[in-house]
Simulated assay, not measured.
Amino acid sequence: MNKRILIHVGPPKSGTSAIQLALLQHRDTLSQMGINYPTHGLGANGISSGNLEAILSLDCNNKWQVCEDKISSLIAEFNNSTQHTLLLSSEYFFYLAKEIAVLIPQAKFIAYVRCPIDTYESSYNQSIKRHMNCGPAEFSKNLHTTTLNILSEAVEVIGSKKFILRAYLPFSEDGFDILKDFCTVLDISNLQVTKYSTNSSYAFEALEFKRWINQFSLLNLDTLLDEVLQEYSRGKEHFSLLPPTLFENYQKQALTSIRDFVNSNRVYNAKELIAYIQKRTSLPHKSQLISDTEFEKICEFLKNSHPVIFKEIGIALNKVQNTCSLQAPHRIKIFLTKYQLKRGFISKLGTALNSIKR
């Protein structure tokens, strides 16, 4: 039997969560087809780190590194099985692909190539959603193409024949569907999933609310709040933080970087990706500032639809002592007023805020 090992590396912000959710939901079906997809945990909203722990371990510095013992054990088990394909998926593998290739030389890597503008903005939004970033987006004269640069280096070092490269397109672009596309790689029919939408984008107001709340480091509430703000965001318009004055320049740079990459590497649907970037228009621009009225609307949403998490946030904000270095500290008072805390505390907070203004 010809056996193959496929390692899906993402990269980040290219539909990995949806792919992993589908694979996990259909492990038994895949196994019957001869594909071994090792089980892994699943967090809120269908988010996970995939098969991270199948071949990686934490080192003494608490950083994930390739584990030779885990790899040897996993491959030995696979070789002794009746299955013809071992499939692994994790975005962590993206940054360790070169090391993995040394220990699993027979592996082929699956990677998606996305418009660098979309990747950059999506990565920033993700840093607010999941990584407690509370800083504003920064746009320099030149477009950041870090993800594409890392992929280019990996392909050059490992070898292009070891990569299966696919274009990542918006869901509605010419009928593109990330799950159908991934199933094509596996040479199987499309996997039907009971829950497709994972890691949904925030509305602008929700993103700014989360950016503000991140400065309080409410780690115990972060996952729940993320899920709730995704709910608030459904059906609201898409937006961009990229200043319109930079869009044309970024678009040209994105085209150049993608053309250079596809000229050196075979990328399935490369023409469609280039065409998408060429005709891509700037989304409605938003400056990173919401009004107190918009802030209050989210507070009302939390209070009415999710009173438990609203209460927990109120309790946490009630404990805030030093407001000197906070962004928009007066919004603590707005939230606590909605929370209907004792007037004495709100009065003291108001006095403190007034002293800061002076």
Results as ranks from 00 to 15, higher is better:
L103R: 09
Y95W: 12
Q83S: 11
S72L: 09
H144K: 15
P170Y: 04
W64R: 06
E91Q: 08
S90H: 02
N62T: 03
Y196K: 14
C134M: 13
F139I: 10
N80F: 01
I188P: 00
A101D: 08
L87A: 00
E205K: 05
S127I: 03
S81K: 08
E91R: 08
S172G: 07
H131K: 13
I188M: 04
L151D: 07
N80G: 12
P105V: 05
P116I: 01
A101E: 01
F176N: 03
A107C: 05
S123D: 08
N61R: 09
A203T: 09
G159N: 08
K162R: 11
S89P: 01
I158V: 13
C60A: 13
G175H: 09
E121D: 07
I75Q: 02
N61I: 03
E99L: 03
E91H: 09
T145C: 15
F94V: 06
K63R: 14
L186K: 05
V193H: 06
Q106G: 02
E121F: 00
S160R: 15
N80C: 11
T146I: 14
V102N: 01
L74R: 12
K98E: 15
I71V: 11
V185E: 12
S152G: 08
L87V: 02
I128D: 05
Y120H: 06
G135K: 12
F204R: 09
R166N: 04
A154I: 10
N61G: 00
N79L: 10
C183E: 10
E99R: 04
L87D: 04
C183F: 13
K141D: 10
F204H: 11
I100P: 00
N62Y: 09
H84K: 15
E91T: 06
K63G: 00
I104W: 01
V157T: 15
E205P: 03
I110Q: 01
F176D: 05
I150T: 13
R130H: 13
C115E: 02
Y92L: 12
W64C: 01
S152Y: 06
L186E: 03
I71A: 04
I178N: 01
L169G: 03
I158M: 04
Q65R: 11
S73W: 00
F109R: 05
S197V: 13
A206T: 07
F171V: 06
A101N: 14
L186D: 07
A167K: 02
Y112H: 05
S152F: 00
V155C: 11
L103K: 14
F139M: 10
A107R: 04
S152R: 15
S160H: 13
F171C: 00
E77N: 15
N62D: 08
K195Q: 13
F94T: 04
C134S: 15
F182W: 11
E205Q: 09
I75K: 13
T145V: 15
A111G: 02
V193F: 07
M132N: 08
L191V: 06
I75D: 10
C60E: 14
C115W: 00
L87K: 00
S172Q: 13
L88T: 03
V155D: 03
E156H: 14
N133L: 14
A167Y: 02
I158Y: 01
K70R: 15
A137R: 09
F78K: 11
Q83K: 15
E91N: 13
S123V: 12
S201I: 08
F93H: 07
N190I: 15
K162P: 05
F182D: 05
Y112A: 02
M132I: 12
Y124C: 10
